[in-house]
């Protein structure tokens, strides 16, 4: 792996974790009785930026290196399911996250400071962010499973 590809892979990992940390923080904030709307906007915006960086770097790594050099090794190794099941699920589920984060950002921007009073919207957003965080953590762990199978 070239230094540039290593850097791209590291970028994918670090920004992915930062995005998951951002989603988790959003979940914690939404559980408060009166969520701070400025913080919600800031965290949803940064999480979206982080997930996009992770998305783009991951896609570049997949297209230029993983498909040709890593996939055949995993498929021919002791854990072929790491690609056939885990990676296939990961790469498709991952596609949802930027869009879901954009939905959260738009909802937070338009609800403004009224989110605390609108219990229905707050519950829906809390549920959405919780699902996104769980997906984010599952995807992060999937990345580990895939990396460990390259042998």
């Amino acid at each position: 792996m070239t230094p540039i590809l290593s850097t791209i892979l590291l970028t994918h990992v670090v920004f992915g974790i930062l995005a998951v940390a951002g989603m988790y923080s959003l979940w914690m904030m939404l559980l408060k009785r009166e969520p701070n709307s400025a913080n919600l906007k800031r965290f949803s915006l940064w999480s979206l930026v982080f997930i996009l960086i992770s998305w783009i770097s991951g896609a570049y790594y997949y297209l230029t290196y993983y498909g040709a050099a890593v996939k055949p090794v995993i498929k021919g190794g002791a854990y072929p399911w790491a690609h056939l099941v885990v990676m296939e699920a990961k790469e498709h589920i991952f596609l949802f996250l930027p869009f879901l984060l954009a939905v959260v950002l738009v909802a937070v921007i338009f609800s403004g400071t009224k989110l605390g009073q609108d219990e229905k919207l707050k519950s829906a957003l809390t549920f959405l962010v919780a699902v996104m965080t769980i997906i984010g953590i599952a995807i992060t762990l999937s990345g580990l499973v895939i990396s460990g199978a390259v042998r």
Binding site: M1, S6, L9, L10, V13, V14, I17, L18, A21, T140, L144, S147, G148, A149, V150, R151
Partner: peptide, 25 residues
């Protein structure tokens, strides 16, 4: 927590690029 988690994943990244993938399992 964030610093520990990111640096922890940093180790796993190093295992991956140094051919020590077995340690990840």
């Amino acid at each position: 927590l964030i610093v520990a988690v990111i640096s922890g994943f940093g180790f796993l990244f190093l295992y991956r690029i140094q051919g020590l993938e077995g340690l990840i399992y």
